[in-house]
Simulated assay, not measured.
Amino acid sequence: MLSESTMGDPPRFLSSFFGVFKKGKSNGKKQTRFQNPVALPEEIHHQFSLPQIKAATNNFHRDLILGEGGFGTVYKGFFNDGKSAVVKRGKLESEPGASYKEFRTELLMLCQLRHQHLVPLIGFCFEMGEMILVYEYMGDMRNGTLPDRLYGSGYDPLPWKQRLEICIGAARGLHYLHTGAKRAIVHGNVKSGNILLDKKWGCKLSDFRTSKLRPRRSCKPKASERIDPLVQSNLAYLDPEYLETAQLEEKCDVYSFGVVLFEVLCARRPFVEHDGEMKTTTLVDLACKSIKGGTIYDMIDPYLKGRIAPECFKLFVDIAGSCTRVVGD
């Protein structure tokens, strides 16, 4: 248990909390209703009808769009109880296939999860080919996603303390996924863009499309196991070992989280261009080389220089490096 006195001391708090993340230390249209998603109390999940969703979003009006992603379009919805919600509408496809699998995965996972640093699921809709998830609306959402605040235009730089609190919140969310259930849950798509910030700067992990239960230790990897295309699309966050084994485990999340830590420290994107050329390298590669060369301080966000206690800086870098360390390095 972490004491209040420990939390008041950033280096001690980081050391005691992030220790768990050090890599290698942890052991079709005809269907109109989604039947029995999971046996949970009604207040945890609710099946909305398509007319309810259309009414809440003014028939998916473009003025209510909050954003668009690989899964589909996200709207702000207004329901009859006076509450606002985030309505995530999957892309309409003649052959749902993989999209249905992603939708079902995220739904089943979120129905079982309740944590202050995970986006809460309110309900879902599966009618007439529509695959819709409804989440709690996080305040006024003006703080957007983590990368918006790290290197988006028009924003003041995030203070170091605020960055630390965001990282600690994300770490707590991941720790819950990995240890808070009978079977560990692997997020599978940890990246700064999936860390949402509410109006009070509280962070929540989102996007559980690639999440899965960790394989039982007794299970042998299947020879036919394939790398998930959605996971592979985020190469800068991808654990190199996953490319070799295709086994999505907790350490994959740990590696990705380490990439996020370097983003937070350096305020740089995970892929780095070389002098405007097409050739790119990863932020992790640059950071690891700088650590070995003793020049990591030169890479950090200029705004943070002189604003981080030396012992805190060293510990943060050690944690990020430990998360992204590949076996054999």
Rank of each mutant, 00 (worst) to 15 (best):
E4Q: 10
M7A: 10
L14C: 07
S15L: 10
V20H: 05
K22W: 07
G24P: 13
K29N: 05
T32K: 06
L40C: 03
H46I: 00
H46T: 01
I53G: 02
A55L: 03
A56G: 03
T57V: 01
R62K: 07
I65F: 00
F71D: 02
G72D: 04
G77C: 02
V87K: 05
S94F: 02
E95Q: 11
Y100Q: 06
L108H: 02
M109L: 01
H115G: 02
H117R: 05
P120L: 00
G123S: 02
M131T: 04
D140V: 03
N143S: 11
L146H: 07
L146R: 09
P147I: 14
D148Y: 08
Y151W: 11
W160L: 11
K161T: 15
Q162K: 15
R163Y: 14
E165A: 13
A181T: 15
I185T: 03
V186W: 01
G188V: 05
V190P: 02
I195F: 01
D198W: 01
K200P: 02
G202N: 08
R209W: 02
S211K: 05
L213W: 10
S218A: 14
K222H: 09
S233T: 08
L235D: 11
A236N: 05
Y237N: 14
L238T: 15
E244R: 12
E244F: 06
A246W: 11
E249V: 14
S256A: 15
G258E: 09
G258Y: 06
G258A: 09
L261Q: 07
L265I: 13
K279L: 07
T280R: 13
D285M: 06
A287E: 08
M299G: 03
F316Q: 14
V317A: 14
I319A: 10
C323N: 09
T324C: 14
D329C: 15
